[in-house]
Design a binder for these strands. Structure first.
Lengths: 246, 246
DNA sequence: CTAAAAATAATGTATAGACATAATAAACCT
DNA sequence: AGGTTTATTATGTCTATACATTATTTTTAG
């Protein structure tokens, strides 16, 4: 008897049903952290399906970190220690135009030089290298939105030498031209110094949100950037939705 | 001829090898965004394995958002629009003790009341409900670390009535006692007002990092919290590592 | 009584084949 | 030429089975 087929019209597929069934029990608290989930064999019987189907559901739950699986012991509801959320930092142009505001960008400084000690320390590289130092300014409807200070490692991204950053911001250019494998963000609040205050038209000492980002590809630093936003006006939003609910 | 088995001692499993092979090509830029990935049939031949194995590798790459798959058309390297990173906001106690510093916590205010209009707006609920309003203070080695202002929706979390928040912080208690399905963070920089300055021993107007978090379970708001950190001293770190490299 | 060996229970990976679904391309008929 | 039907291609789900791996228990031998 081999009844292959999935004609449950409209309904989601079986493995998804199994996954969300378990997900609901966990998120509602019915199955608290540490609770043991029925074994694959038990679920096979309960849903009258093959083990592979059950396995696919449980594997996804494990990848989403909702459960932990141990051989011989079974699967258990995971005990979360930290609150983690997905932070999406959009390209500034996209962010502004999405709000229906007029985006404007101006390149203030573009200098190519051998990396100074400070440059190397910021990029986190040891050996000497050439860098492109950039400063730029983003505005929405003519109102200052963010100030950008950036170093590009020219040994890692030689194409940047030819790039024209007077029209397109380095962030946009890099995102579309250079693949990367790893990034680190450091977010802090600072008081505006003299330069920031002038560029963003705020008072000296006024609170600003700062994002420091470094990006790597295969262990090589590609770029380091500091984005300064005038305080209250800008918020970073990180949303964590039920652990990748389809 | 059915040669089932995976005795490649030491080596990672086949589907993982396929996945990382493709991952490397994408992250190195060899296969740029938009590039078409060999079809499952082609990969079957290339790796001399069954389609399910290839499918598992490609499905994981699609879940990690490295590729996009379209029926009939094939699989393509994804063109990323936003830079997304996983932000982990640890429990404050864990954060401080992890740094090897002495953690101290003090509950300043605990008041139960019917939700005011301001309370309801902050929680994002319409109907009247009971809330627990809390204010607390966290320190590391006696130095002010963060100030916490929180509302707990008692209709959603009735157990909180009995909880003793004088020893354990509400954040820790909630994390271990109440399952949640969704959370939203809003991060901004503000200047310290009178109250913040007094609590955190900083000057009025000095920059502070603020995290506003709201947490839900099945659409019901559980709690809203505002954490204020003294500016420069605290940084949020979000790291994005090669799209879930195993 | 204890250390070594064997059975066992759970998850992990893989196969070969089947049917389902979606999007496109080709053939066909006005 | 343009619209309709049919074939094709690639992904998506599912089955039934096999062997692998890991961590226990249970049994057995000294």
């Amino acid at each position: 008897m081999t009844l292959v087929s999935t004609p449950r019209s409209g309904a989601p597929t079986l493995y998804k049903r199994i996954r969300t069934d378990i997900e609901k029990r966990i998120l509602s608290g019915k199955w608290p952290p540490g609770h043991r989930i029925p074994s694959e064999h038990e679920l096979m019987k309960r849903y009258d399906c093959s083990r592979m189907t059950v396995n696919k559901a449980l594997t996804e739950l494990a990848q989403a970190d909702l459960i932990q699986r141990r051989k011989r012991a079974g699967s258990f509801v995971h005990r979360p220690q930290v609150l983690s959320a997905v932070l999406e930092i959009a390209d500034i142009r996209a962010e502004i135009t999405a709000l229906g505001r007029r985006y404007d960008y101006r390149l203030l400084v573009r200098r190519r030089r051998a990396a100074s000690r400070a440059d190397r320390s910021w990029l986190g590289v040891e050996q000497p290298c050439d860098v492109l130092a950039l400063e730029a300014y983003h505005s929405a409807d003519g109102i200052p939105f963010a100030m950008e200070t950036r170093l590009i490692n020219l040994d890692a991204v030689p194409e940047a030498r030819q790039a024209d950053f007077t029209r397109e911001s380095p962030g946009t250019w890099l995102l579309t031209h250079v693949p990367w494998s790893e990034a680190e963000h450091r977010i802090a609040a600072i008081g505006a110094d003299d330069k920031i205050a002038k560029t963003l038209h705020t008072a000296e000492g006024s609170p600003c949100l700062v994002i420091n980002r470094r990006t790597w590809r295969n262990g090589q630093t590609l770029t380091a950037v500091r984005l300064v936003y005038p305080g209250q006006e800008h918020q970073l939003v990180a949303r964590f939705k039920g652990r990748q609910a389809a």
